[in-house]
């Protein structure tokens, strides 16, 4: 009896955890199901009959695929720019001492602590006040995305850098590596995983952003904006195809990364 009680209490917390995880997947199941759904009518967003049409013709809804392309372009550019700028900042913050470091940290922290609606609104206020109200679009979205991705990149890379023993670079220089060699042979390979996760995070943030984008988009439509517009009218099932595909891609990427890591460990 005591043993049973012990078993239950040992596993209860795991069971609760599993239930919470399952709850997190409920909408995903719906999205996957809906991607194979043929709705009874155009305006009915309900499960009805099975079809592969949505997967075979993902671009059928007007503007969906072009919005995806726009999101990809902005996502890639914003990721590139914010990763480069943010990585440089992280290096400055960890490896150099300079005046104004505390102030810099606050400026980096603030965008993460600000509600998106305020950041979006304030950028719009700026663009309007300098007479850019008429040219809102691709470039203003990009500017905004780089801005809010930047802080997350800095924080991610900084954490990795702080976890790195700075004596490794000194050891490299002690072993006849010049500053540049020490950086490329030792520092960079060790920080790279941090830079990579920062870039992935930046891309995910940029690709998924709606609120800030919505304020500064003008006539340009990103994928989240397409979904938003569709949600006001009738929702094409194809958005679930995109959602499912993104989910599958991400899971495959993560799992293959993990498998690669495990295999590399086993080889050694």
């Amino acid at each position: 009896m005591i043993r049973l009680g012990r078993w239950v209490s040992d596993h209860a917390i795991m069971a609760i955890g599993a239930v919470v995880l399952a709850y997190m997947f409920v909408p995903i199941v719906i999205v996957v199901l809906m991607s194979f759904n043929r709705p009874a009518s155009r305006s009915a967003y309900t499960l009805d009959a099975f079809t592969l049409d949505n997967w075979l013709h993902p671009c059928e809804p007007e503007g969906l695929c072009s919005s995806l392309v726009t999101s990809m372009q902005i996502g890639l550019l914003a990721t590139f720019a914010s990763t480069v700028l943010g990585t440089l900042m992280a290096f400055a913050l960890v490896r150099h001492s300079f005046r104004g470091r505390a102030a810099t940290n606050v400026v980096i922290f603030l965008p993460m602590a600000s509600p998106e609606v305020v950041m979006g609104a304030s950028l719009l206020a700026l663009f309007v006040s300098v007479g850019f109200g008429g040219v809102l679009g691709f470039w203003t979205i990009l500017v905004a995305h780089i801005m809010f991705c930047l802080s997350f990149v800095v924080v991610t890379v900084r954490a990795r850098l702080q976890g790195m023993d700075s004596r490794l670079e000194q050891a490299a220089m002690d072993l006849y590596a010049t500053e540049a060699q020490a950086f490329w042979r030792v520092t960079f390979p060790l920080v790279f995983p941090g830079i990579l996760s920062a870039a992935l995070l930046a891309f995910a943030l940029s690709f998924d952003d709606f609120i800030i984008t919505n304020f500064n988009s003008g006539q340009t439509t990103t994928f989240p904006m397409f979904v938003w517009g569709a949600a006001q009218r009738d929702v094409p099932m194809q958005i679930n195809v995109v959602g499912t595909a993104m989910f599958a891609l991400a899971v495959v990427a993560v799992l293959s990364g993990e498998m690669l890591r495990r295999r590399r460990e086993r080889v050694q």
Partner: peptide, 25 residues
């Protein structure tokens, strides 16, 4: 489990929220 916590969030925020609309319909 960590991957599973993050995984749902690769599906677009809006698409997930629309799924909730269906669940609670």
């Amino acid at each position: 489990m960590l991957v599973l916590v993050i995984a749902p969030f690769f599906t677009s925020f809006l698409v997930r929220t629309l799924a909730w609309k269906l669940i609670l319909s």
